[in-house]
Amino acid sequence: MSIETEAVLQQWLAREAEVRARMAEPGVATLDQLKAVSGIDFLLGILNGDYPVAPIGKTMDFIPVEGEPGRIVFQGTPGVQHYNPLGSVHGGYFCTLLDSAVGCAVQSMLPKGMGYTTLEIKVNLIRAMNSKTGPVRAEGKVIQVGRQVGTAEGRIVDAAGRIYAHATTTCLVFPLP
């Protein structure tokens, strides 16, 4: 491993530990909590421990580590528990990680009182992951968010910058009930 890659890896692990130290237990926010703040304020509230982290993150062992309007980053470390019968990380891990990143990127642009749901996601797996891959990050970036539709793109990379998968999504944007 190069010195540069080792430095990035150490930064990633430190950031993950910092975020995990202040995160709330997994759970589901109330509708009133969701409606009270903008999408980015809600996501930053998860990072700060003000709102519960999504239960899927516990199941798949990944968490949000960065967020700003139009850009969200999730980090996880694939392991044997994510394997398919062939001995590599199941495609569902890639898809779930990317769906979280691109969907939350769209959410980060929504005003107070608005929500979203994934209508479509297209994922391209281009490199296998296994228990030796180490931490990976899924970065979601908004392409465009309108009144009814939001689109975003994302990719999974390791600390050396190798791309494992990329995705695009289309999300339905709607007023929260």
Score class of each variant (00 low, 15 high):
162 R>M: 02
16 E>N: 09
21 A>R: 13
108 S>Q: 06
31 L>R: 15
122 K>I: 13
34 L>M: 14
67 G>S: 12
164 Y>F: 12
84 N>Y: 06
102 V>G: 06
22 R>G: 14
1 M>P: 14
103 G>P: 09
49 G>T: 11
9 L>R: 12
129 M>L: 06
29 A>D: 10
128 A>K: 05
126 I>R: 03
87 G>P: 01
4 E>L: 08
66 E>F: 12
161 G>T: 11
108 S>W: 02
121 I>T: 14
115 G>P: 13
108 S>N: 09
158 D>K: 02
84 N>K: 06
46 I>A: 08
52 P>T: 00
86 L>K: 00
107 Q>F: 00
72 I>V: 15
170 T>E: 01
36 A>W: 11
57 G>A: 08
55 P>H: 15
60 M>I: 02
69 P>S: 12
123 V>T: 13
88 S>M: 02
112 K>W: 11
153 E>H: 03
154 G>T: 03
99 D>G: 04
7 A>M: 13
70 G>E: 12
148 Q>F: 00
156 I>P: 03
159 A>C: 10
127 R>V: 06
139 E>T: 14
15 R>F: 01
100 S>M: 00
114 M>N: 07
84 N>M: 09
45 G>R: 01
158 D>T: 02
74 F>R: 03
38 S>M: 11
161 G>F: 07
64 P>Q: 12
93 Y>H: 15
149 V>P: 02
110 L>I: 08
174 F>C: 06
160 A>W: 01
143 I>S: 05
132 K>L: 00
137 R>A: 02
106 V>L: 02
143 I>A: 05
76 G>I: 00
79 G>D: 10
26 P>R: 03
137 R>M: 04
60 M>W: 07
91 G>I: 02
4 E>T: 11
4 E>S: 09
107 Q>V: 02
136 V>W: 00
17 A>T: 13
112 K>P: 15
133 T>K: 05
170 T>R: 04
167 A>L: 00
69 P>N: 10
63 I>C: 04
34 L>H: 09
48 N>S: 10
82 H>C: 10
48 N>G: 09
123 V>I: 07
115 G>K: 06
177 P>C: 08
